[in-house]
Each structure stands twice: as structure tokens, then as C-alpha cells.
Amino acid sequence: MRQPLFRAALAAALLSAAACATLSPEDQALQGSYAALSAAVAAPHRTPANTARDQYRHPLETLSFFGVRPTDTVVEIWPGGGWYTEILAPYLAQGGGRLYAAAPDWGQSGIRKLKEASPQLYGNVLTADFPAFDANATRVPNGTADVVLTFRNVHNWRMGYRREDKQDYSPEAFRQIYAMLKPGGVLGIEDHRLPESAPVERERTSGYLKTSTVVRLAQQAGFRLAGSSEVNANPQDTADWPNGVWTLPPTLALKDKDREKYLAIGESDRMTLKFVKPR
């Protein structure tokens, strides 16, 4: 498994410290960011059901690979119930950063619940519409985000999820993400991975996407692929299940049928891709 770049850089910094006794300001910032992120992942406020999934979602390694710093302005696209928000909100608040939760109105209920239940942790989380089709929508201001993150959502845009016409609006979603990022900003994507040899039609029904599809969509919007990580890979996932990716945990769409089999496989095989908006 490939080591995340952020973690590798930290290891190099620590080795340098052993040799030179002192860290450079850049290495000190790197070490401090990693320590703060580790603390956010281990924080007691996180929901036990969420921490139980760390073994599949690898939040420390994933966010380290994307290079999220505590001083960043971060946009989390479609945060759902706030699995990553539980980590990002206190991490960014501690460092003076800013977090946007961007979703359609129907997709912001989870964030509203977090803000109401724990205003001291999530009260500063900003909300925005995404995708923003309405001229009066609340948008993330163009050119203001250091990092945009989206976890297991691109397949929804490709499928036309929750849109009556089932129209694929992934190109427009990538265009809007590109606009909100600063030059040099990072787009981090994690999604269920479809083998490149599989029929492309399965992207519209299975919840899985080919890596080449995601790379093409990002590049068409103007992004440059900066790296990929296998931190969220699962070679036991063959991506050919009867109810698509939802056959596997945590959904377990078949309920008790072959439940132990799917629990043994674990959560899906996922691509983890880092893109950069050129300067």
C-alpha cells in the first residue's frame, strides 16, 4: 500500500530533526498539522458508530494524503450525516481555518443536527448550496477554497441521484468545484472503484465508478491529477454484487442474506485521488 505523501513528508522531517536537532519552520508546521489531525481523529466527541468505521475509511491517512492544514478554508461537498465533519470542524477551528458544508437543502439536515446538538463544535460551520443551479443559491465564493473534499459522492452525480430526470450532472459539479478553488487549490476525491474492464453502463446503476471516468471529468474541468493513494483499497471487493455497492457494509442491502459473507469482505474498494487547480 502506498504511503500517503503527507505522512511520508512528516517521517522525513522527523529523521531530519534527529540529524540536525532542530526542525525548520516548514517542518514544524507539518509536524504540528499532523499532530492536530491525529488528535481530531482520536477526539472523544466523535460518534462511536463513526469511529468503528475508521478501519475502512482511514481518516488520518486520507486527510493527510490530501494535505489538509488547520489554517485552510475547506469545502466538504455533500457531508451527509457529518462523518468527516466531526473531524474537520474542530481541526480547522483550532487552527483558524474555515469549513463549508456544501449540499442541496435536502442534504444539509445532518449538518443542521450537528450544529444544533453541539454548537461549540460545529456552530462555525458555514453552509452553501451544491450544486448551485438557482441564481439565488448560496454559493461558496469563487476562488476562496484551499481544499475541496468529497467522499463517495461522484457516483451520485453520475447517476443523477435524487434528480427526477436522472440526468448526469457530474461535469457541472466539477465545473462548480473548480470555480470555488483558489489557483493551486486541491480537490480530494474518494469513491467506490469499478474495474476498468467492466462495462461503463454499470456506472449508472451500481454506485461504482472507473478511476478513468473520475480523472476524465476532473481534467475536463481544468484539474491536473497530482496523485493517487491505495489507502482505501479493498482487494476483496469484486464490485459485481447483486445490489451494487450497497450490498456491502455499512448498508447491507440484502439484510440477513449472506450477511456474514459481506461483513467479512468489508466496505468497498475505493479510489483516493488528489487533483490540483493549476496556478
Rank of each mutant, 00 (worst) to 15 (best):
V231G: 05
L181C: 09
D168P: 02
P183M: 11
V200A: 15
A253C: 02
A264W: 10
G244S: 03
A239M: 08
R175C: 04
G222V: 08
R175W: 06
Y262I: 09
R204I: 07
A253L: 01
G184I: 13
K261G: 12
E172D: 12
G184L: 13
F223V: 05
T211Q: 15
P250N: 10
R270V: 02
T205Q: 12
L209W: 01
H192P: 00
G244V: 02
L217C: 04
F174V: 11
A253Q: 06
F223T: 04
A198Y: 14
L225G: 04
H192S: 07
R163P: 06
E267N: 06
Y208F: 12
F151R: 02
R270M: 07
R152H: 12
A198F: 15
P183G: 11
L263C: 13
L181F: 10
P199G: 07
N156D: 15
R162P: 08
R152A: 12
A264Y: 10
T205K: 12
D269L: 08
R193L: 14
T205V: 15
A253G: 02
E201G: 09
N153I: 07
A218T: 08
A239W: 02
G244D: 00
T247N: 01
T213F: 03
R163C: 10
D165N: 14
P183V: 10
A239L: 06
Q167R: 15
L194F: 07
Q219A: 06
L254C: 11
Y169I: 15
R216G: 07
E260F: 12
F151E: 02
G222R: 06
Y161H: 14
L254A: 14
W241A: 03
E203S: 00
V214Y: 03
G244T: 00
T251F: 13
P171R: 03
L273D: 04
F174M: 14
H155T: 02
A233L: 03
E203R: 00
A239S: 13
F223N: 03
V200H: 10
L225F: 08
D165I: 12
T251E: 14
R216L: 12
G160E: 05
N232R: 14
P171L: 03
P235M: 05
G185C: 09
L273K: 05
R175F: 08
Y208R: 01
H155L: 04
R259A: 12
G185N: 04
Y208A: 00
L273R: 02
D237H: 10
S170P: 04
L252Y: 13
G207Q: 00
H192A: 08
A221R: 02
V214H: 05
G185T: 06
Y262N: 09
E267H: 05
